[in-house]
Nucleic acid binder design. Structure first.
Length: 188
DNA sequence: CCCTGATTCGC
DNA sequence: GCGAATCAGG
């Protein structure tokens, strides 16, 4: 299949409407893969659709010397994957970008709830402080504890899963599936 | 394991 | 120009 004007036009339309590359690939007839769609999108220089004001510098461009695609059927030695140090650095190198608006909103809500909070605190302050030693707080999480939140953050019973997480994963095996396995993908 | 877009580079 | 392989991330 070739990129006719009609197919390109449809590609542009669907891409601008927010369809994913795989969805567009399915929409276009023929054996078009999502990679083909993405490649075409980049060549057309329309990879930017509705940026949220935030454009992180593309510094994640490694140039692996390893062969991209073996042209000969000779087998190559297997490569080890995933190390403990890699997982640790991945966590420590995490960058959190908080939009100014979020901070302002949080502050505003904080002050708004202040008076309401004060009344509640005076009546049930004892209940709030008792279980603090037993709960798993945010700061007590480590790289090997499941970080799946349980309960309402506003409730004193709020805690994290805390079970052992797989190497390099933020959640335990059970919650990792909950987090990444898409159940209602079709409804979009 | 499911998915997303981004990038590279042999063809 | 094309797109599979690969990467990086949620």
């Amino acid at each position: 299949m070739t990129w006719t004007d009609e197919r390109v036009a449809l590609l542009k339309k669907l891409w601008m409407e927010g369809h994913s590359a795989s969805q567009i690939a399915a929409e276009l007839s023929g054996g078009v893969t999502r990679n083909a769609v993405i490649g075409k999108v980049h060549r057309l220089k329309l990879s930017a659709r509705a940026k949220p004001t935030n454009v992180a510098p593309r510094a994640k461009a490694p140039r692996p010397t390893a062969p991209r695609r073996p042209s000969s059927p000779s087998s190559s030695p297997g490569h080890a994957r995933g190390t403990a140090s890699a997982a640790a650095s991945a966590v420590s190198q995490r960058r959190t970008t908080i939009a100014p608006t979020m901070g302002a909103t949080a502050l505003k809500m904080d002050t708004e709830l202040d008076t309401e909070m004060a009344v509640e605190t005076t009546t049930k302050v004892a209940e709030i402080f008792i279980p603090v030693e037993e709960r798993i707080s945010l700061l007590q999480l480590s790289e090997k504890t499941c970080k799946w939140p349980i309960g309402d953050p506003m409730n004193s019973e709020f805690h994290f899963c805390g079970r052992e997480s797989e190497e390099g994963k933020p959640y335990c095996e059970f919650h990792s599936r909950r987090a990444y396995h898409q159940v209602d993908r079709r409804k979009r």
